[in-house]
Nucleic acid binder design. Structure first.
Lengths: 397, 397
DNA sequence: AACAATTTGTTTGTTTATTGAACTTATCAT
DNA sequence: ATGATAAGTTCAATAAACAAACAAATTGTT
């Protein structure tokens, strides 16, 4: 327990409100902040003074010679200072990992790409990850806050509460307490979560989902991963492993899925599904990228395989729309082209099949960060924790 | 906006923390509250004094002659006083409505059952509802707080934010601003929501889901309605109409559903589905209750129809478990018997098909309030709003 | 029966962050 | 220059929590 209020609590609360307002709405003057938050000018001045000292915020002392509107003293523009510190985001993939150094607005400053060999053990991979992160930290510019934390996005089941990778089948990792391992090595706050969850957070805070409270992020790859944000909160469920909409049954008599179930969406709408379908039609084995390339060249079979995937994706997402009523669905995929057709098809199937759509349609579009979704999202995860105010969880029972 | 902190805010916050602690953990002494909340004894004393005055709380002055443990002054047991006021919950059904008068712990004190005729218009029905509610209010005992509000559970799409029934196909109601109509008539706070959402809240606060943070409530009737509580919050989505898992596609080539989609779960696992299936097998038309009765008598066809529904329910719920990672699934149905077999079957299918289950199993059981789920839940909806403290939604934008 | 020990609950003064109002600073228009 | 207006600061008042001392109630011990 503990989340009761005292003076410190409300100080933190208001400070956090002001800081977060600036974070996403710079520049703002003190008076403007006062108007938007309802705090008095005096309170805002005090908080700003503190934030200036901590360098989270900068005064645009250039006293903008913006001529124009209105008599009276000019407002001093205050800006959130993204350069006050760094975050590190790690995208852990099946045969690679990528370490990003970002500023406090999740702008990527440096990228480190590494491959993981087939023969590398879990320990080996983690050791190399630690080394690269340490290198990245040392190479980063000095800032008032330094590196505020490290986030990791993982393709698999992650208990984000305890910071444990429960099972990442593609990585062949199981029961790895990655958070505590990294925290011990790095002496920094570490956050880990599923790759799609992290992607959802990144897109919702800094990407295509900015300002939208209910967002579904869908990452289309070998499998299908989803991260769902409802009412500005990522859904995590009892053990922090919610969000596996890719294993929603679409045909209860369908083929077996690696997850043990039958007829999962993933079997019909992932890259793997496209490749398999194309193989069925042409008896040729092609990579996903090649199928797309073929499609662009006018190959009817490739087109068919992709359209089928889009259709099924629409079917699955229609269920999801009925269930969760999101305002926005973001799709992150590795299409080089032809993506717009897929989006359109998906969107159409959803509006045909979801009976909620007429009342509250869900927009479908591509994610903003593409292949960087996971890495940037991992950073966003850290920032979210760092900048979240005290959450009064009163009436918890 | 506005959710910033000042003295009043923290007073409310702490008051709400103490009150809610007592609400679900009476009796407690002042010191015990202090220990559990982290507030000082002095603060707790002050808050309790206020709550005693408002009669939300009572002192057990009987100075329990409980002999026993420990030296020192005996603690004064404090109890939440459910009789401080009343709530009214309305279960609006297809051909009936039911008005419940409850105390502040959602204990049902009086029940008014009314039928709605085929020929009654929406206006007629609402007028009668208003009359019965007014009657119920007048008939209720006098209490310090009186009736604190009215909740209504509705079988259809409800925009709970705006308090509007968007579409209740079975009722043939569309675009009804029920909340404002009732508030104008009754001069009381009114809350409306989908029947299953309301049921979920009721069961999670006062029924079989007490203390569980992640609960799925599934109401099995003509259709399938679901209410989902994640992290102690009901999911509502962008327009407040989330929760329609009954229209999840289970077979994308399945028969047409009234919702416009194909192969929805509802077509395979609702009462209607059982009736239809039984008809297919025997060419006899029987009510749901009759099918159950036949099953109890050993009718193999009836058994088959019910088992099939249970199987499909399991298939659907396995997807839902993968997607939302709930700790508990509560099923509210109108079985008179044989329910346990269904639950067991559902549970088994889920554990076979959900790959999340080994890491975080979802318990399946029957709801506590049965046919009262909706009415009690409607009351719980009001209580939840009434007793929820100030929610700091800091870092929003 | 008196008294120490112990625990509950109250009283009192201190601390702290917000508020509101008065005040200073800066800018434009006449 | 002067008045009007808006931005930002200063300062006393307020309110709620806190910490520590105190009062009350109960048991066990001499």
């Amino acid at each position: 327990m503990r989340a009761t209020g005292d003076q410190t609590y409300i100080k933190n609360l208001n400070r956090s409100i002001v800081l977060n307002l600036l974070r996403f709405n710079s520049p703002l003057s003190r008076v403007e902040i006062s108007r938007q938050t309802g705090l008095t000018k005096a309170t805002v001045s005090g908080i700003i003074e503190q934030l200036l000292q901590e360098q989270y915020v900068l005064e645009d002392s250039h006293v903008e010679p913006t001529g124009s509107t209105g008599v009276g003293r000019r407002p001093v523009p205050l800006r959130f200072n993204p350069s006050a510190g760094h975050v590190i985001g790690v995208d852990l993939g099946v045969d690679y990992f990528r370490v990003l150094v970002m500023d406090l607005s999740c702008k990527v400053l440096t990228t480190y790409d590494e491959t993981i060999g087939e023969s590398d053990s879990t320990d080996d991979a983690i050791r190399r990850m630690v080394d690269i992160i340490k290198l990245a930290i040392h190479a980063a510019n000095d800032t008032p806050l330094g590196v505020i934390g490290v986030g990791v996005g993982i393709p698999g089941l992650v208990d984000s509460n305890r910071g444990v990778i429960l099972n990442a089948p593609n990585l062949h990792w199981k029961d790895v307490s990655l958070r505590s391992i990294l925290e011990n090595e790095l002496r920094l706050p570490v956050f880990i979560d599923n790759e799609a969850n992290v992607g959802a957070i990144g897109e919702q805070l800094f990407g295509a989902g900015r300002g939208v409270s209910n967002v579904v992020f869908l990452s289309l790859g070998r499998g299908i991963g989803t991260g769902v944000i409802l009412n500005n909160h990522l859904i995590r469920g009892q053990a922090g492993i919610a969000g596996e909409f890719g294993h929603m049954t679409i045909d209860e008599n369908g083929p077996n899925c690696s997850c043990g179930n039958k007829g999962c969406l993933e079997l019909y709408a992932s890259e793997t599904a496209v490749i398999r379908h194309y193989h069925q039609l042409t008896n040729t084995t092609a990579s996903f990228k090649n199928v797309i390339r073929q499609m662009e060249k006018g190959d009817e079979n490739a087109k068919k395989a992709v359209e089928s995937a889009a259709h099924f994706l629409g079917v699955g997402l229609a269920s999801l729309v009925n269930a969760l009523n999101p305002a926005l669905i973001l799709i992150s995929s590795r299409f080089d082209s032809g993506e717009e057709n897929v989006i359109q098809r998906v969107s159409q199937v959803i509006s045909e099949r979801s009976f909620i759509a007429p009342y509250s349609p869900a927009r479908v579009q591509t994610s903003q960060f593409g292949s960087f979704s996971c890495g940037i999202g991992a950073g966003a995860l850290v920032l979210q924790a760092h900048f979240s105010g005290p959450d009064s969880q009163a009436y918890s029972s």
